[in-house]
């Protein structure tokens, strides 16, 4: 079954960031032809474990399961509150803990929330470059929800539907690229010695 991971960096309970994440997930699931297995990760639940992981170098317990769920998903929805014109520190910490190369070629839909629409470009000048560096395959439409959007008629719903459709199309169009496991397929020593392994 297609697997969709949803990461919400919202801090409130309830959280408008989580609300947006859920709507994006529903729109994506609705646009995928088959069934979809959705794993939603509230980063708040892993806050302590994330700091520990940055110090020890390994995630433990439920955080490890969250990192694995993101690594194995066919698509990712990543939503953060806007703090000081950018993603939150908690959001970036989670990204820093992800396995190297785990976003490689992965379809990703970006979302952010904020008090006013003045910060809507934070998605484009902060989140997009981050995911570009990770070589993720980010869909063109990203969704920013300011406080007033929650009472703003159909416009938010339209953007959510368009973004979900784009992510679903990308997830359906191409399976995630196969990964070479260096433990299952080690580089033979003669290749290492001839210095051609990395050229």
């Amino acid at each position: 079954m297609t697997r969709l991971a949803v990461v919400s960096a919202g801090l409130g309970q309830p959280s408008s960031t989580r609300l947006l994440a859920d709507r994006l997930a529903a729109a994506t699931a609705g646009a995928l032809p088959g069934g979809v297995d959705v794993t939603t990760i509230d980063l708040r639940d892993h806050a302590h474990a994330m700091v520990d992981a940055t110090l020890t170098g390994f995630p433990t317990g439920p955080l490890r399961a969250a990192v694995e769920a993101v690594g194995e998903a066919d698509g990712l929805i990543a939503v953060t509150p806007t703090f000081n014109a950018s993603y939150s520190g908690l959001f970036k910490t989670f990204v820093d803990i992800l396995d190297r190369d785990s976003m490689d070629g992965r379809p990703v839909l970006l979302g952010a929330t904020g008090g006013t629409e003045r910060h809507s470009l934070a998605i484009d000048f902060a989140m997009r470059p981050l995911f570009a560096y990770l070589r993720a395959n980010v869909v063109p439409t990203a969704v920013y929800a300011a406080s007033e959007d929650w009472g703003g008629g159909e416009r938010l719903a339209d953007r959510v539907a368009r973004a979900g459709g784009e992510l679903a199309a990308l997830m359906g169009a191409r399976p995630a690229p196969p990964k070479v496991d260096p433990y299952d397929e080690p580089v033979p020593f003669e290749t290492l010695l001839s210095g051609t392994a990395r050229s």
Binding site: T56, F58, P186, V187, P188, F189, L192, A197
Partner: peptide
């Protein structure tokens, strides 16, 4: 994994200092 491969190639020992992970 490259170092595991190297140790294996020569038939040398392999030491895994696993104390932190």
């Amino acid at each position: 994994p490259e170092i595991a491969e190297q140790a294996a190639y020569y038939g040398d020992g392999f030491f895994a200092n696993h104390i932190f992970w």
